[in-house]
Design a binder for these strands. Structure first.
Length: 421
DNA sequence: AGTCCACAGGAAGGGCAGGCGA
DNA sequence: TCGCCTGCCCTTCCTGTGGACT
């Protein structure tokens, strides 16, 4: 289209973004401040933990190696934010002339021993040609480069391993063993580890030597209560919203809903952000309590959608079987589900897995929160798992039927309805 | 106390894919 | 490129289990 054409069209048809731009915004500054990635200037109700960690890390500013630290706490209790806050503070504390290098690794993104070491070592290498590749090198070669580069820094290096429990469950404790004894090979640098974990019990999976070296200091973050969450939200809302943008109920409601889960500040901030974005889309300049309830439903549905989307094919079929059975009876057993699953597989021409394997998949669905399963004995009726769908049946079925892998199910559904028990 | 049911779940091993190193 | 190694997914086989029933 030529320039005149564009001008002409703009006169007769309003731009699709017009109503959103002209409505103004209930945000007074960047909404990114409501995301978990934003690090605030202060962390309310974490003064004690900050102080504990500062006391440990301050050893490094005096030129000694600080003890390794294990940080425990559930999601959204401020563990990562506190460690990053300490790292920032340490980089500002130049008075002693000592410098520390903090390297942060999320073990969900780098989830093998090799990828963690490769990620850390590449942080210290500017030349892309010199960097360790994603694969192809032996562990020994990448460790050797790691030792060389860390030693060349001639300073204290603090490696922060976030979601460490996941790495240990997936790849064992080899990485921790090697990192914890690396100081024996360093002449000019020192290395300390801060491990962040959700699960207190993951240290049971560690070798005794690793356990004692790594857990020299432990800090446990307790969940926030509703009043503490309210303070956190108030502090953040002051930065982000105009004074009149939130009705008085909104922050207490977000805090109460997040406190009901497990005192998750991340969830509280997400509720507030999604509620505000929903109000904004409707062209309102005030966020109401209803927006928070809608945000809660949306977040829950998004979580289920994402979990279902990433399931393997056979697990999707299994969830579909559970949904189908749940339409008839709310509580079911492994045997009930297996019969339904088996019929479904025959109908759509898929090789069915064995009942043994399906038992394991049901346990996995339980861990993902899609079903609730508990072992029960019915005397002569036998011992089995009693299973209940933990997500809305209709929405889950719709999400699964939209899946292209399960599209053939659409054609056979009517037939199945008549063949199932 | 012994029997029975319907599984749970551990152990061992097969098949396959992908990474590693010569 | 090719053989070896490792991890993952799955099956087969097996023993164990809790509680109603006899």
């Amino acid at each position: 289209m030529n320039e005149h054409g564009a001008v002409h069209e703009s006169l007769i048809r309003p731009n699709v973004f017009e109503k959103y731009i002209s409505a103004g915004s209930l945000f007074k500054s960047d909404r990114e401040m409501l995301r978990p990635s934003y690090l605030p200037k202060s962390l309310p109700h974490r003064e004690k933990e900050i102080d504990q960690m500062a006391a440990i890390i301050s050893t490094g500013l005096r030129g000694d190696r600080p003890s390794n630290v294990l940080v425990f706490g559930k999601t959204g209790t401020g563990k990562t934010a506190t460690v990053k806050f300490i790292a920032n503070e340490a980089s500002r504390a130049h008075s002693t002339g000592r410098h520390m290098e903090f390297v942060y690794v999320n073990c969900c993104e780098a989830d093998t021993n090799y990828s963690v070491v490769q990620f850390i070592v590449n942080k210290f290498i500017d030349d892309p040609e010199e960097r360790a590749p994603y694969n192809g090198w032996s562990m020994e070669r990448v460790y050797s480069l790691f030792r060389e580069k860390v030693d060349a820094l001639k300073r204290l290096v603090v490696v922060v391993l976030d979601e460490l429990d996941r790495l240990v469950y997936k790849a064992g404790d080899d990485l921790l063993y090697n990192l914890s004894r690396i100081n024996d090979d360093l002449k000019h640098s020192k290395l300390s580890i801060i491990g962040i974990a959700n699960d207190l019990k993951f240290t049971d999976f560690l070798d005794a030597r690793v356990k004692s070296r790594l857990g020299e200091e432990r800090i446990v973050f307790s969940p926030y209560d509703a009043a503490e969450l309210r303070d956190i939200l108030n502090a953040r809302a002051e930065l982000v919203f105009h004074a009149e943008s939130l009705v008085p109920d909104v922050i207490p409601l977000c805090s109460a809903l997040a406190a009901q889960e497990h005192g998750d500040a991340r969830r509280a901030l997400e509720l507030l952000r999604v509620a505000a974005e929903s109000a904004e889309r409707e062209g309102r300049k005030t966020v109401l309590s209803d927006d928070v309830y809608r945000a809660k439903n949306k977040i829950e549905l998004d979580t289920v959608t994402e979990t279902l989307r990433t399931l393997p094919y056979q697990s999707k079929l299994l969830v579909l079987s559970i949904v189908m059975y749940a339409e008839k009876r709310k509580i079911m057993t492994t045997g009930d589900i297996y019969a339904t699953y088996h019929s479904l597989c025959i109908s759509i021409g898929v090789q069915a897995l064995t009942q043994r394997r399906i038992g394991d998949l049901i346990s996995e669905l339980d861990m993902l929160g899609l079903v609730r399963a508990r072992v029960r004995s019915f005397g002569r009726g036998g011992r089995t798992k009693e299973i209940e769908l933990a997500v809305p049946a209709a929405e889950t079925r719709d999400l699964l039927v939209e899946d292209e892998l399960l599209s053939s199910y659409k054609n056979t559904r009517a037939k199945l309805q008549t063949t199932l028990i």
